[in-house]
Design a protein around this nucleic acid. Structure first.
Lengths: 361, 361
DNA sequence: CTGTTAGCGCCTTCAT
DNA sequence: ATGAAGGCGCTAACAG
């Protein structure tokens, strides 16, 4: 029924082992023989049986990429970049080449259970590598579970790469632990510079729309903001002007309305990310505040649409594509990092949505 | 070294066959025995070997989702919705449940070669199902290659579902062919209604920023536009005011500048999708045209950010989430479609970016 | 450079 | 309801 390696071998008049060797390309085979085998493969329309191959070789060509929200370009950009370094790139003849890997992205939706489930599924598939993107939940129990899982994955030969997620807090204070490499975004520094920018423009009453609680990204960005405010002697006002919510437009809208209620004299709103910032803009406009004349607004990430908002969003640029691509290379073992940790810079991008603080009436 | 089924069997004092049966749950096992086995699984921290299982059973639990651009929310939303119906949803205990599938999204980047490569990789993995999302390339050679590949996948037991891609043109005029189900978006009808809306507002000189050539989505949307224009006796002007480009912001920007050059008296621009429309807005503003007073702009898809643009975008809403979820269910075989084809409606959404045509000076 | 020989870990009839 | 045994298709030592 389905054609196997043996069929190809028979047609090419060689042994199955030889066919395997030309297909995997990691062993010398005479050019003429290879030629014959390849022709037989084409004639028979043979397709390698992945599971059988994975079983025998005890490794598979799957690379998992975990994302919190696949509908969010923040993750889409990183995942796409990583995938570009991993699979489907070989051009003609691909599909049987040796280095060919299958990058698969798994959407956890931010749910800790699903994150663990996917990790198990990937472990079950004996994945060659796993890339975890974006912030992590800061629940001790879950962190421990993830760390344990990653440890097992690593033991099984799976390379683990973190992209935009802080290195694991290892209880036993060892080396990098199971993680081959971690790309850490400078969320704290970026957030600090962003708020400093606002302070320099004269803002003193600054609202902060934070991300979901107990997430590393949320905490780091908030800490950066707090640092800047504290340095300006405004540390005491932060808590009262901070509202938490998910990383979506709706959250920015709702939270901004709430901030306006708490402090009508607000002259600036800093959002957890660009999407949230857009929601904030909508709320402000609805309340008759013009941007940036009455209220300045800033986001984070510098997603593609941010430059197109009206006015264009002041934000902090994270090189998501570059980071994702690097993570992909790291996962493929095509690059190594001595220390294990790669800092990814965050750059302040000033655009039209922020301006000098309005004079308080 | 790594714990296997046999280890679990030994610890539970049963035969490997029994362990396999409780794990797969598709065979009666005494409650007490099952209990014992499950405990052994936990004690030993056993994880099923996916490849071995797939090899023996000749099926795998992988479901592939092909997308053209993972960084585009259009695809992210569909993929996320499909994935929500497929895997990682079982909650606690998941990871060994029977119905558990691993949804993996593969990013083709719109490249035909990569599309084929991924299809081969999926075939190699003996995927349980494959979902192809978004428009297809209209190259005869490639279409035939894809159709052939899908036929082989179907022969191998893989369920094939199309979401937002027209049903395959089958040369042999058979039934649905290898495709289990096809969700087809009403791109043509939606585009027609959109242009009719503009015509009703008095617009006569309408520029069209189309998507990449030779793509079904591009063609259908353009045809809908052309239909409406023709019905208004304006069919002759379409070609001269149509510019093609990729589905990104930059394309909308460049194409709009080009349209303005060709016809400075333009009163409306219809874009291939919302992202492109944003680029068109940027170009218009840069040229001093206000929206919608001088020029109306419309998009397509109704992505989340469209409601937040300034002014909010008039567009055509496609129920992407619902369609993706349905595709996921279809792929899981949890739902069947008699005819094989499911039409997905497209709804005109009028917002602030379109208004009555400016009086020509 | 190529063939031979064993498994890889699991599922699945067949018995019992 | 459970056990025994064969084989899924491929790879990886070893020989030669």
């Amino acid at each position: 029924m389905t054609v196997t390696l043996a069929d190809v071998a028979a047609r090419a008049q060689v042994s199955p082992a030889t066919v395997s060797r030309v297909l995997n390309g990691n062993y010398p085979v005479a050019a003429a023989t290879r030629e014959r085998v390849l022709r037989a493969v084409d004639d028979l329309d043979y397709v390698l049986n992945g599971p059988a191959s994975a079983l025998a070789a005890a490794t598979s060509d799957l690379v998992g990429i975990l994302v919190n929200d696949i509908a969010d370009p923040f993750f889409g950009i990183m995942a796409g970049a990583a995938q570009s370094q991993i699979g489907g790139t070989q051009g003609p003849g691909a599909g049987r080449a040796g280095g060919e890997k299958l990058a698969i992205v798994c959407n956890t939706g931010g749910s800790p259970e699903r994150e663990l489930t996917y990790l198990t599924l990937l472990q079950r598939q004996r994945a060659a590598a796993v890339i975890l993107t974006g912030g992590a939940l800061e629940d001790p129990g879950h962190s421990a579970a993830v760390a344990a899982k990653l440890g097992k994955l690593a033991d099984g030969g799976t390379r683990v790469v973190l992209c935009g997620r802080p290195p694991l807090a290892l209880p036993e204070g060892g080396d990098g632990g199971p993680v081959a490499a971690a790309l850490t975004f400078d969320n704290r520094g970026g957030a600090r510079r962003l708020t400093e920018h606002l302070l320099a423009l004269g803002h003193r009453t600054i609202g902060y729309v934070a991300g979901p609680v107990e997430r590393t990204t949320t905490r780091h960005r908030l800490e950066g903001h707090r640092e800047a405010m504290a340095a300006a002697g405004l540390g005491g006002t932060v808590d009262a002007l901070t509202v938490h919510g998910p990383y979506d437009r709706r959250s920015g809208y709702d939270a901004t309305l709430e901030l306006l209620r708490r402090e009508p004299g607000l002259t600036a709103v800093v959002a957890a990310n660009d999407t949230v910032a857009l929601g904030a803009c909508a709320a402000l406009r609805e309340r008759g505040r013009s941007i940036p004349d009455d209220v300045s607004v800033a986001g984070f990430d510098d997603l593609p649409f941010s430059a197109d908002a009206m006015p264009a969003l002041t934000t902090v640029r994270l090189p998501l594509y570059e980071a994702g691509a690097r993570a992909g290379r790291l996962a493929m073992g095509r690059e190594a990092v001595p220390g294990g940790v790669v800092p990814v810079p965050a750059e302040l991008v000033v655009r039209g949505s922020t301006g000098v603080a309005a004079v308080r009436g």
